[in-house]
């Protein structure tokens, strides 16, 4: 669905990513892992097309990213950055509706409602976004990015249109335990149901172990390991990359748990 091959990213003379090749498929939850400063967010930004000069190198649905018109791209893929700063007192539902400026009012209301409900923030629809807690704001932002591609998702399911893509940078960093699980359950369900692809930068290895299909482990801008999640999350690899001892607890019929020692 989206891919780069043998990709190098250099910013201000510094090599940020080196020889990165990755191909994300429709219907999967793909996580990007690695220590701080490994280049995870940069890779996500490359896929999001934030570096103008590198857009031709990114293939999205068999076309270079640079060949898409802004609106065409917006309907097929949404991006949630690590942090969103908003200084104006919009209602939560208005924040979500900003993602879909080109559809009619009734359709906006329906989609906003659906997106808010998916992330358990429907009851906050009429609240001032600035008065919400960090976790609530994050869930409203998740609803916003999902609302943006909801139509493409429905079309992909019903008429076999191009499935959409979600790019998420640490989208659960402010969430409590239950909501972290709930968010990834929703994301995985959508990935399966409508063949949507989810690419998430994550720090929590256990969330990755629980919900991801495949993973890419980065260190200092290079790929250390890539593949099915449980082939990536091995004790030796984690210890080498994160420079800290861990134990992996294998459990029958459950995802393995990673415990730092």
């Amino acid at each position: 669905m989206i891919s780069v091959a043998d990709f190098n990213l250099t910013l201000n003379g510094k090599a940020i990513l080196q020889q990165v090749s990755v191909a994300i498929e429709a219907g999967e939850v793909f996580v990007i892992l690695g220590p701080n400063g490994a280049g995870k967010s940069s890779l996500l930004k490359v896929l999001a097309g934030e570096f103008e000069a590198y857009k031709p190198a990114v293939q999205f649905h068999q076309r270079p990213l640079s060949s898409y018109a802004p609106r065409e791209l917006a309907q097929l893929r949404a991006v949630m950055p690590q942090a969103v700063h908003l200084d104006f007192p919009f209602l939560a539902e208005e924040v979500v509706s900003m993602a879909i400026p080109y559809v009619g009012k009734a359709e906006v209301n329906r989609r906003v409602d659906e997106a808010l409900a998916l992330f358990d923030v429907r009851h906050l629809a009429q609240r001032n976004y600035l008065t919400l807690s960090g976790g609530e704001q994050q869930r409203v932002q998740l609803a916003r990015v999902l609302a943006q591609i909801l139509t493409a998702a429905k079309q992909a399911e019903q008429t076999g249109g191009l499935p959409p893509l979600l790019l998420l940078d640490e989208c659960t960093s402010s969430l409590d335990l239950a909501h972290q699980q709930q968010v990834f359950k929703v994301l995985r369900r959508l990935a399966r149901a409508v063949k949507m692809a989810v690419v998430a930068v994550l720090h929590d290895l256990n969330l990755a172990s629980h919900y991801a299909d495949r993973a890419l482990l980065l260190s200092e801008g290079k790929i250390v390991q890539q593949g099915p999640i449980h082939q990536v999350l091995t004790q030796s690899t984690i210890e080498a990359v994160y420079q800290t001892p861990v134990e992996i607890i294998e459990r029958p019929d459950r995802y393995p748990v990673i415990v730092p020692l």
Binding site: E50, P70, L73, A74, Q75, V79, P81, V84, F90
Partner: peptide, 13 residues
């Protein structure tokens, strides 16, 4: 208001 990048990703010029 949510950032230049955000409005770009939403599809605005």
């Amino acid at each position: 208001l949510m950032g230049e990048r955000v409005s770009e990703h939403i599809g605005f010029n």
